[in-house]
């Protein structure tokens, strides 16, 4: 539904986006990750047709964004960063305006506006100027205008940025319910969000796509992938750490907190080691408080992929 081919954007000598190519299909929720200034927003702005690329093409639903901009924009909904809206308007008048711009009139227009207001819970503030609304409501107004025409492609630039946990949960729920029949691209700084809503994650750094896979793929790249956390009730026999380290498939065991007898056991090459650890626990009859498998730390993967090599050391 969305196809980017060798997309490149330069601002003078600065390369903002460098040869980015990918496709996103119906039912996919692609999470764009990357440090600030990595080119996420610029890429999104080119997909929506706001910025013209220096090179490359974008097609939305088969329409070239620059050759047939109106057709492409019709099947596209966009929430720009910070959810800008005309502050002096009320959510109702603003959504009416966007709906009219999208070509809806009369009963169809009112139906769509009330439907979308219900979907994002805006009815309570329908008649207040947008300027006076809280950040959460403003974001919902932005979301509402992006989905009023039920687009098949949705581009959301940091949809949950600045929202409180409840609002985040709501917005994510909304995205999930829409995900089935749409192609959605969203950018975020919040790594947990990738888990919560995305079917696919892409890390962009230094203007290039660095990884592209499922959130689980991304986690598997963490050195903590399949690591086991083991906490025992002390006092316990000495040499627990050495025993753990000696288990097959174990790379190392590090004590997280010496007094509390808490260890993180790291596997060799990300292989599952929970079996070996639990057998060892049984054998020695240790009094276990906690035993769990880690999936991997996205933030650690993110850091190791996006930071220049010398900065890591």
């Amino acid at each position: 539904m969305v196809e980017l081919r060798q997309l490149r954007k330069t601002f003078g000598p600065i390369v903002a986006v460098d040869e980015v190519s990918f496709t996103v299909g119906r039912g996919e929720v692609l999470g764009f990750l990357g440090p600030n200034g990595a080119g996420k927003s610029t890429t999104m702005k080119m997909i929506t047709g706001f910025l013209t690329p220096t090179q490359g093409t974008v097609t939305v639903n088969g329409f070239d964004v620059w050759k047939q901009p109106l057709e492409a924009k019709e099947s596209l909904g966009y929430l720009p960063e910070g959810a800008p809206a005309y502050g002096e308007m009320t959510p109702l008048s603003f959504l009416m305006f966007v709906g009219e711009m999208r070509g809806f009139r009369g009963a169809e227009l009112s139906r769509r506006v009330s439907e979308v207001m219900e979907k994002v819970n805006l009815e309570g503030v329908a008649h207040q100027p947008i300027d006076t609304l809280s950040k959460g409501f403003k974001r919902r107004v932005g979301l509402a205008q992006a989905i009023i025409h039920d687009p098949s492609v949705l581009i959301l630039d940091e949809p949950t940025d600045g929202l409180d946990p409840n609002q985040k949960h709501e917005v994510r729920g909304l995205i999930k319910t829409m995900a089935r029949e749409k192609a959605i691209i969203l950018s975020t700084h919040v790594l947990e969000e990738v888990h919560a809503v995305c079917t696919r994650a892409m890390i962009i750094a230094r203007s290039k796509v660095i990884t592209d896979g499922t959130p689980a793929d991304l986690e598997a790249r963490s050195r903590y992938h399949n690591a086991v956390i083991l906490r025992l009730r002390g006092p316990c026999a000495d040499g627990v750490q050495a025993m753990l380290q000696g288990l097959p498939g174990v790379e190392s065991a590090e004590a997280l907190d010496g007094d509390a007898m808490e260890y993180r056991i790291l596997p060799k090459d990300g292989q599952p080691i929970i079996g070996a650890v639990s057998q060892c626990v049984h054998r020695h009859n240790w009094d276990v408080v906690e035993l769990s498998v880690e999936h991997g730390h996205l933030d650690e993967v993110f850091r190791s992929l996006t930071m220049p090599a010398q900065a890591l050391t």
Binding site: K45, T48, G49, F50, P69, L70, K73, E74, L76, Y78, P80, E81, G82, P84, A85, Y86, G87, V98, M101, R102, G103, Q145
Partner: peptide
């Protein structure tokens, strides 16, 4: 300044 220019020009309008 308000960023609404982005909104306006991503609507189907020339």
């Amino acid at each position: 300044r308000g960023g609404t220019i982005e909104l306006l020009f991503t609507l189907p309008v020339t």
